[in-house]
């Protein structure tokens, strides 16, 4: 599945077996997106949040 990057317009290849929550990145500018759903065979993306690594004990 292909879609385009909101930031640079580059082509993002989303794997056919992508699942909700999967993070994909633009090969051109590195922007990361989260797959929020797959609608009629097309991925719906939103910019991925910056999430730090502080996961407790």
């Amino acid at each position: 599945m292909k879609t385009s990057c909101e930031v640079c317009g580059g082509e993002i290849d989303v794997p056919d077996d992508a699942i909700k929550g999967e993070i994909v990145s633009c090969p051109d500018c590195g922007s990361e997106y989260e797959v929020t759903e797959i609608k009629e065979g097309k991925p719906v993306l939103k910019p991925a949040e910056e999430i730090g690594e502080d996961w407790g004990e």
């Binding site: 794997p15 699942i19 929550g21 999967e22 993070i23 989260e34 991925a48 949040e49 999430i51 502080d54 996961w55 407790g56």
Partner: peptide
């Protein structure tokens, strides 16, 4: 932390519910 990004068993990055860490 409402969301965490992990690497799943397929080796791919996935955002999941963050559980109860802070």
């Amino acid at each position: 932390k409402k969301r965490l990004v992990i690497v799943d068993e397929r080796g791919r990055k996935v955002a999941i519910d963050g559980g109860y860490t802070g």
